[in-house]
Amino acid sequence: MRKLLNTLYITTPEAYLSKDGLNVVVSVKQEEIFRIPILNIEGIVTFGYMGASPGLMKLCADNGVSLTFLSPSGRFISRVQGPIKGNVLLRKKQYLLSDDQAYTMHLSRLFIGGKIQNYRNILRRFIRDNGVNTEVEDAASLLLIRKNELLRARDLDQLRGIEGDAANVYFGVLPHLILNQKVDFIFKGRNRRPPKDAVNAMLSFAYTLIANDVAAALETVGLDPYVGFLHSLRPGRTSLALDLMEEIRAYLGDRLVLSLINRKQICIKDFCMQGDEGVVMTDSGKKIFLSAWQSRKKEFIIHPYLGEKIPVGLLPYVQSVLLARYMRGDLDNYPVFLIS
């Protein structure tokens, strides 16, 4: 099993990355503020525009460390990756399968079905922990109906329509899952580009982090993150990463956001307005979120298919391995990750 290493998050917009031997050096205004051996990390994510030296980029490429650039608000800009590793025959098989309509429909049903089921499981767990809530129970029942409708869908457009309806049902009752700080963290549905409230700002931030981790994991196992099945091909879009994260986004992202709010680990002062309507996390808010994110990734779970204990942070990698095995024909079906 692959070893889980830390991801280095640089939240200071004025930070510049360089190398010194085998160390990553972080400087602000030409003054060193932090350094870490490259062997201790598996990825670098930086929020800012100062950039990184060519030497640091080569150091990352030589050591299999992904270097991702995000805007200060958390929007994806680009990712620098070293030479492609993995079996070229696997990628060739992936490209052929992506043109197979029946195969594409089957995988897309699995991705969306896993997503909807995990939505249901989050709602059902809330009911178990907090007692009867009619609206949440009705939503969970409606999600089961939407999940069963997937079997009757004839094309990707119908699948996407069902997925959209299910998301509206789930996010429609998400405010019930916010138990504390209700006045400050008002949620009236999913919105983005830009997020219009603090909850959506955190959800978008979390989904960007998840997509980055999934794309890096797919690269690691030899799959092309840009060639997907459910999400259409588009220049610069990691379609397969977006496919694979559907089943895990609620588990990794939504539950973390709800936990931060309900445990009062983050407060409304950790957010600020950007422009006329957009809301973003402040630097202090990002540090709180990223600290919780790193801690969450170090927790252990029993993987429902493998039956083995793994760190949560390895979940994107494990699902990528299972997807690659399915594409190679080593597995009869792709085992979607489902939470209990």
Rank of each mutant, 00 (worst) to 15 (best):
N168G: 06
R124P: 01
L252W: 01
S295R: 14
R192K: 12
V132R: 11
V279Q: 01
V227I: 15
V183Y: 15
K264E: 15
L22C: 02
G228Y: 05
L123P: 01
S284H: 11
Y9F: 14
L150I: 12
G82P: 10
G55L: 09
M202L: 13
Y49N: 07
A324S: 09
K298L: 12
L242T: 05
L258M: 11
L230F: 09
D62Y: 00
P13K: 01
R192C: 06
P72Y: 14
I301M: 11
M202C: 06
I162G: 11
I162V: 13
S108P: 07
L8S: 02
I36S: 03
F205P: 01
P194I: 10
D155A: 12
L142H: 15
R255S: 11
V28I: 15
L223K: 08
S239K: 12
R146F: 13
I10V: 14
V26K: 04
A166Y: 00
Y49M: 06
N87C: 12
E163V: 11
L218Y: 04
L151C: 04
R125T: 12
I38C: 00
L5H: 04
I33M: 10
G307D: 07
N148C: 08
V173K: 13
C272H: 06
P13E: 04
A216T: 10
G307A: 07
M245F: 04
L159S: 09
V312K: 14
D20E: 12
A292I: 09
D270F: 04
I44R: 04
E149R: 15
L290S: 08
W293F: 07
I186Q: 10
V279Y: 00
R328W: 11
R255V: 04
N63P: 11
E32D: 03
H303F: 14
E277M: 09
K182Q: 11
L70V: 08
I288P: 05
A211W: 07
P54I: 00
E31K: 09
V26Y: 06
T7H: 12
F205L: 07
I127W: 01
H106N: 13
A201N: 03
T238S: 09
V173G: 10
S284N: 14
L56S: 05
